[in-house]
């Protein structure tokens, strides 16, 4: 017999698969003059991008983070649009270099990496797999979008360790721009929360 938890896990797993497919299908645009050689390059390119991690949360790839806005392939050229999590994120330069290096490693050397604000990155772009990895890393994933203009404080964030909702906001700012600090009254410890933006 399959438990409720197991059923929930299975549903999550399905969503993860769907999400990855959508990255391949929608966000990797082959240029008009591409042809089959472009199709053959798609999955190595995607795997290369999945190997680039956010240096501040090393368990998540930039694909998990939803930072890869677009990849355009035109003959031997590739243009990758990266939408940064926070405008002042100090890791942007490093991520840009890492993307070029990872693509070079799979034979793609004519690469342009653009930093774009369209589409704007929001925490909604983190994939279900990314959210799960965040939780395993000990950072509570962001909840549904609060609406950028609303002053809703992130209170009662579920504890990533025990799941308790009896938690409180300790500090709106944490060790990196994207994280706040909370305290769990059940397991009596502080935890970090990836801020919804």
């Amino acid at each position: 017999m399959v438990s409720e938890t197991q059923k929930r896990r299975n549903r999550t797993a399905t969503r993860i698969v769907d999400c990855r497919l959508s990255i391949v299908d929608c966000r990797l645009d082959a240029g008009a003059a591409g042809g089959s050689s472009v199709a053959n390059r798609k999955s190595p390119i995607l795997r290369a991008l999945e190997s680039v991690t956010d240096p501040e949360i090393p368990v998540l790839s930039i694909v998990d983070m939803g930072m890869v806005a677009h990849v355009r392939i035109e003959r031997e050229k590739i243009a990758v649009d990266i939408t940064p999590t926070f405008v002042g994120c100090p890791a942007v330069g490093l991520i840009r270099e890492s993307v070029a290096a990872a693509l070079a490693a799979v034979g793609e050397t004519d690469v342009t990496v653009n930093i774009v604000f369209d589409p704007p990155w929001t925490s909604d772009r983190i994939t279900p797999a990314g959210r799960e990895k965040l939780r395993e890393f000990g950072v509570a994933p962001p909840g549904p979008r609060c609406g950028a203009g609303q002053l809703t404080e992130p209170t009662h964030v579920p504890c990533p360790f025990c799941g308790s909702l009896v938690t409180e906001l300790e500090s709106l700012f944490g060790p990196t721009l994207c994280r706040s600090i909370h305290y769990c009254h059940r397991c009596l410890q502080s935890f970090e929360h990836f801020k919804p933006v």
């Binding site: 405008v87 002042g88 604000f117 704007p120 990155w121 002053l151 709106l172 933006v197």
Partner: peptide, 17 residues
């Protein structure tokens, strides 16, 4: 407009603080 959309999400936390 695109940049403002992005910055507003960050600014929210400054104002709360």
């Amino acid at each position: 407009a695109q940049l403002a959309t992005k910055l507003r999400g960050e600014e929210k936390y400054h104002l709360m603080h």
